[in-house]
């Protein structure tokens, strides 16, 4: 009888044998980068439902993404000032 942790380590693969979706991806860059696809997806899904004519969908989605990112950065800066500078 082997310990469960040893067994798990045995059946899971090292990083070179990583299988997408089956195992979590080790992300080498900052997790904040993932904010960008999240904001884009939310913006475009919202605009696809909201706008009347789809002609301006690409531009309006980008504008909304920019606005969300801008105000998130603004809120982050304000919170940083409140916590670190005061």
């Amino acid at each position: 009888m082997i310990d469960a942790s040893v067994q798990l380590a045995g059946v899971t693969s090292p990083i070179l044998l990583w299988i997408p979706f089956m195992e979590p991806a080790g992300i080498p860059f900052s997790y904040l980068v993932l904010l960008l696809p999240l904001v884009l997806a939310v913006s475009y899904a919202y605009k696809a439902i909201k706008i009347e004519h789809v002609d301006g969908l690409a531009r309006e989605g980008l504008v909304l993404s920019g606005q969300i990112l801008f105000f998130m950065a603004l809120a982050a800066a304000a919170l940083w000032m409140m916590t670190d500078l005061w």
């Binding site: 195992e23 696809p37 997806a41 696809a48």
Partner: peptide, 30 residues
């Protein structure tokens, strides 16, 4: 939306929602 004939809206919704869903599975695994 695609079934109702709003194909551009349907395609954008498919790309954004399924893209986000697949990205979540890719990052965290199933």
């Amino acid at each position: 939306h695609w079934l109702l004939g709003h194909r551009v809206r349907g395609s954008v919704l498919l790309a954004s929602i399924m893209g986000l869903w697949l990205l979540g599975l890719l990052v965290g695994g199933i």
